[in-house]
Design a protein around this nucleic acid. Structure first.
Lengths: 258, 258
DNA sequence: CGCCACATTGATCCTCTTCAAAGCGTGTGG
DNA sequence: CCACACGCTTTGAAGAGGATCAATGTGGCG
């Protein structure tokens, strides 16, 4: 089946390349990656905060596990801004020594790899690592587009629509790094976390998932999600799959050739 | 009074400098600004779309008037992601030839200035315009922080809280370019636009504004807003004024000295 | 004067929240 | 092997916050 959740098929560098690579051809910079990323991943348990709101950013790659960018109101209400999946980067910023605008919370046991050497190289010799810089910039653009999708969900969609939309987004983002296929993917989150992502109460999150099951659109089992009718789900969610890149056709072609 | 809404006191360059400048000392790059921005502003009426979702980005400065970054669902539900005020920039991106992830809609009559020459200069000789690059990067970070604030509003705050929070944000952003003071500022938006920003129905937006008036927190008159008790409003909204910058203290100091 | 966009109001409905309790699965210690 | 605790899911009932529908007011402007 397409339920490919490889134990550890990709090296750190391969994971990053797969995640950032497609539209931009990596060459001289692969070496840099391998050099900087050969070190072992660092682990932390679920619930750990790695990087707090207001603290200096530290660039990291998520090697395995899920995290969330989160902020909490005085009275405890919590909002997750973005779910962070294997292959996602945290703390990359064009501003030197920037401060985190949200807390990063491990939602499952997490393995991360320091990207400091990579960003340092980028800072020291931007010319030489232009492709890398472009890849990171592209990634930032994708992240921003993701935030806008999320705003659309929270501002204008119903609980059912939001949930369908998020499931499709997660499917596509996971597929991009080889985790899961068109219908199956890992979903190791509690309903409380999903609720905090989608701006719902836990109770209503539960009932919304039930509704999706009742409609024969979704199956959940042991941290795995199965989309039984992705097309219908996309209809409900008004979901558009992510563009291949945020580059225009012209420059995209130019990059492929360059 | 602090109700300073100058007719046209600032040059294009001064407006930009005031908006981007504070933490980063502008020097050699002012010249560039003035060179590139001497040209007259271009006007368009309210309702015009300048830059559509999916079209190539074009860098612009809002000289006067308000715009919104917006996206619409198939069925017409609309979400405004970010209100764009005088001094705000549109279409700045680290990726060359990026595509817009949202449509920019003029909410009032609008005057804009092309920033193409500025971004071109940045692209051609990044070394020489490092301060400018930093300023734009900082600005991008601020914009992202603003998106997270907005997500918090839409995901976890009530109509009253959202409205209070947005009003305070607008006050501070306007004050940063000399429009309005601690209690007064221009607010040339219809309730429908506010509703589409805050993820509410027009009717409920109306009632929420009434509630704020009833609580003696807000007065609206002729496109001007008056906050009658900013502190209490901040309490309701759980509002934290924006940090001076997103730079850490160390690098912030370094920049001031450099 | 009459039009038009915008603001306001009333009534009703429904989505979602809240509170409280009960299932369920898994791991732990006795 | 059972008892128990703990985290997560599920269920019920009640209520609030907002949406929706349909008018009515109001002010600026040709």
């Amino acid at each position: 089946m397409a339920l490919s959740q490889p134990t550890r098929p990709l090296s750190h560098g391969d994971l990053l390349a797969r995640r950032l690579g497609p539209p931009v051809p990596f060459g001289p910079f692969e070496a840099l990656l391998l050099e900087g990323l050969a070190r072992p991943a660092r682990s932390c348990p679920a619930g750990d905060e790695i990087g707090e709101h207001g603290a200096p950013l530290r660039p990291r790659l998520i090697r395995s596990g899920w995290a969330g960018a989160v902020r909490t109101l005085q009275d405890g209400r919590r909002q997750i801004f973005r779910l962070l999946l294997p292959g996602d980067c945290i703390g990359i910023s064009a501003t030197p020594a920037a401060l985190a605008v949200s807390t990063t919370l491990a939602l499952t046991p997490l393995e991360t790899v320091e990207l400091e050497p990579v960003t340092a190289a980028l800072r020291d010799d931007p010319e030489r690592h232009a492709a890398l810089a472009t890849a990171f910039a592209l990634e930032a653009a994708r992240a921003e587009a993701g935030l806008l999708d999320h705003l659309m969900r929270l501002g204008r969609q119903t609980a059912l629509e939001r949930t369908a939309h998020l499931l499709l987004e997660l499917r596509d983002r996971l597929a991009a790094v080889g985790l899961g296929g068109v219908t199956h993917f890992p979903l190791p989150l509690t309903q409380e976390v999903l609720a905090d992502t989608l701006g719902l109460s836990t109770v209503h999150m539960n009932r919304t998932l039930q509704e999706l099951r009742r409609l024969r659109l979704l199956r959940l089992d042991k941290g795995q999600a199965e989309l039984l009718d992705p097309a219908r789900l996309a209809g409900i969610a008004d979901y558009a799959p992510p563009r291949v890149s945020t580059l225009g056709p012209a420059s995209s072609a130019a990059l492929r050739e360059g």
